[in-house]
Amino acid sequence: MQSVAVIDYGMGNLHSVERALRHEAPPGTQIVLTDDLAVIRDADRLVFPGQGAAADAMQALRSLGLDTVLPELAATRPFLGMCLGQQILLDWSAENDGVDLLGVIPGKVERFPGHAIDSAGRRLKIPHMGWNVVRQVQDHPLWQGLPREPWFYFVHSYRVLPTRAEDVVGETDYGDPFASVIARGSMFAMQCHPEKSAADGLRLLNNFLRWDGAWR
């Protein structure tokens, strides 16, 4: 029986993530919503969601002892970051006057520029909220069975800017293209919410629950 830990550090509504995973889980899969460091360490797979401010998230992770553990765990087993759980994997965020993050992926997090416009010249609203296309820019096992440009649901004001192009596996246009999906080894992280993204999101979660963590 495989175990999947959904990491609960008090940031966001995690029950919708838990329900979506249960819907797609193979028989015999144990899915647990937890902040217990021992349970998280022992899990076969980790899901790292999140909503809210980067500074609050990092404070919560430090209080649970997860700030030093997560980089190690993300490199040793299938690991799925979502929304704020993607941003926290980078080095630094401009949010809250500047916040040091986990440093799993080199790069920074910045707010969308206030002057961004769409293809028709209209000013774009911040936050970026609603459905948008994720354009696959690299093959990855979690894209299996999905169209080349699947639709996912987004709610965010900040975007990740990875240093290395090879860490970007999906891009989305909002004014300019931004890295909506990043990956390295056994870690895969999305700015969007697969648990709120209908059939495409559920298919991605299904793929994650069956992925052996191998990539490149």
Rank of each mutant, 00 (worst) to 15 (best):
A94E: 15
D56F: 07
G52W: 06
E95C: 05
V104G: 00
T29D: 02
G107F: 02
L124V: 09
G98F: 00
L90V: 00
R62T: 13
M129L: 13
G52Q: 11
M129R: 13
L46W: 04
G50I: 04
I31V: 15
I40N: 00
Q87L: 03
V69F: 01
K125H: 12
E110S: 10
I117V: 15
R122P: 01
P127T: 06
P49T: 05
I105D: 08
G65I: 02
M82D: 05
R77D: 09
W92M: 06
A57M: 08
D67S: 12
M82V: 14
I88P: 01
N96H: 09
A75D: 14
A116N: 11
M58G: 03
V133Y: 05
L90G: 02
A116W: 06
Q87F: 02
L73C: 03
C83N: 12
R135W: 04
D35N: 14
K125D: 13
A43S: 12
L66G: 00
I31Q: 02
R62N: 09
G28S: 13
I88R: 01
G107W: 02
P49C: 03
L84A: 03
W131Q: 15
R77Y: 05
I117K: 11
L89H: 10
T76W: 00
S93A: 12
L102M: 06
Q51C: 03
H128E: 08
P49S: 05
L101C: 04
C83D: 09
L90S: 02
A116C: 11
R45P: 13
D36P: 15
R45I: 08
V99S: 07
P106S: 06
G98I: 00
L84P: 10
D56E: 14
M82S: 09
R62K: 13
V39H: 02
Q86V: 08
M129D: 06
E72C: 05
V99I: 04
A38E: 15
I40E: 00
R62A: 10
V133W: 01
V39R: 09
L124Y: 04
L66S: 01
R123H: 11
W92Q: 14
L102F: 02
V47R: 00
D118H: 10
D56V: 11
D44C: 05
Q86L: 13
A55K: 13
L80E: 11
N96M: 05
A116I: 12
P49A: 02
L37A: 11
G28L: 11
A53C: 07
A54R: 14
H128W: 02
E110Y: 06
L37G: 10
L46T: 01
D97K: 04
D67C: 04
E110T: 13
S63T: 15
L73H: 05
T29Y: 08
G114W: 01
G121D: 13
A74L: 03
S63E: 15
